[in-house]
């Protein structure tokens, strides 16, 4: 069960991407996503394609893992593509029957949207989820959101909540499996009957699961208080994140790609898209 969840899963490694500062990775991933949507000309898309390919190779994560990450989003990709093909009105009419008319531009647009979604998924996987531990990610978020403390946003508490939530996902999956096994052993049947019967069959799983989540929360709170946890005030970190030259060079590269995409749109327009 656990091994099926790939999207958003850290893959251990020692590539350059694994070693970049997580804060830089968050900022550059946002910049890169903006860049993906700035691209209008085919030449700009080509540049994005080349750079994402280089990034994927740099992470040394198998391509098969990248494809696996896309599986759960396959439906969304196909759905958006279909909508674009069927509803986009262009100049070159290809097919027309009943109320459906398909234009050449619609197909092009669908292709571009598929490309954007796929690059978006790969980019967030490469920049963040596959190469950054959840802990580093929440630490980085806390550090980036620090200015919000001035307006009394509890940034540390927010980051701590995220860390705890992420930490308990595998634990709860494990717990769920155990409870399902125990109720199955008592003859519970989850796979037959109508919708209402099936929903009712979930009760013997959901109630113990909620009870155990609350029990764990309670135990964790006690354990944290025993170790004198009082929240973010005056708390220091064991690993203080530091940026160095390689992080800033990477940051520069992403800015350059962004700038190049804008320039390519203006000066080398080949089949420019309006979306």
């Amino acid at each position: 069960m656990r091994s099926d969840i790939t999207f958003g899963q850290y893959i251990e490694g020692d590539s350059l991407f694994h070693r970049f500062d997580a804060r830089i990775k968050i900022i550059t991933s946002i910049l890169f996503i903006v860049t993906i949507f700035l691209a209008k000309s085919l030449t700009a898309f080509a540049l994005i394609f080349v750079s994402i390919t280089v990034f994927v190779i740099m992470t040394r994560i198998p391509v098969r893992m990248m494809i696996k990450a896309m599986k759960p989003l396959l439906f969304i990709i196909i759905f958006t593509a279909l909508i674009n093909i069927l509803w986009f009105k262009g100049d070159t009419l290809l097919v027309q029957f009943w109320i459906i008319s398909i234009y050449l531009e619609g197909i092009f647009n669908a292709g571009i949207i598929i490309f954007r979604i796929i690059v978006l998924i790969i980019a967030t996987s490469v920049f963040l989820t596959y190469t950054t531990t959840p802990l580093a990610l929440t630490d980085a978020l806390e550090s980036l959101l620090k200015p919000l403390k001035l307006i009394h946003v509890p940034v540390h508490e927010f980051a701590m909540m995220m860390t705890i939530a992420l930490r308990f996902i595998p634990t709860l999956i494990d717990e769920t499996r155990k409870i399902i096994n125990a109720q199955t052993a008592r003859g519970a049947d989850f796979s037959s009957g109508g919708l209402i019967k099936r929903a009712k069959a979930m009760i013997p799983i959901l109630i113990p699961l909620f009870v155990s989540a609350f029990r764990r929360a309670d135990e964790l709170a006690v354990a944290m208080e025993c170790r004198c946890y009082t929240g973010g005030e005056g708390r220091t970190k064991m690993n203080v994140p530091k940026t160095n030259a390689k992080d800033w060079i990477f940051f520069g590269v992403i800015i350059l790609i962004g700038a190049a995409v804008v320039l390519l749109n203006i000066f080398l327009p080949v089949y420019t898209f309006s979306i």
């Binding site: 155990k178 409870i179 125990a182 052993a185 009760i203 013997p204 799983i205 113990p208 009870v211």
Partner: peptide, 15 residues
Amino acid sequence: FKVGLVMQYPEHQLF
């Protein structure tokens, strides 16, 4: 039904 199984910490499965 023929082979009853009581798992570890079965009290966590009451509902």
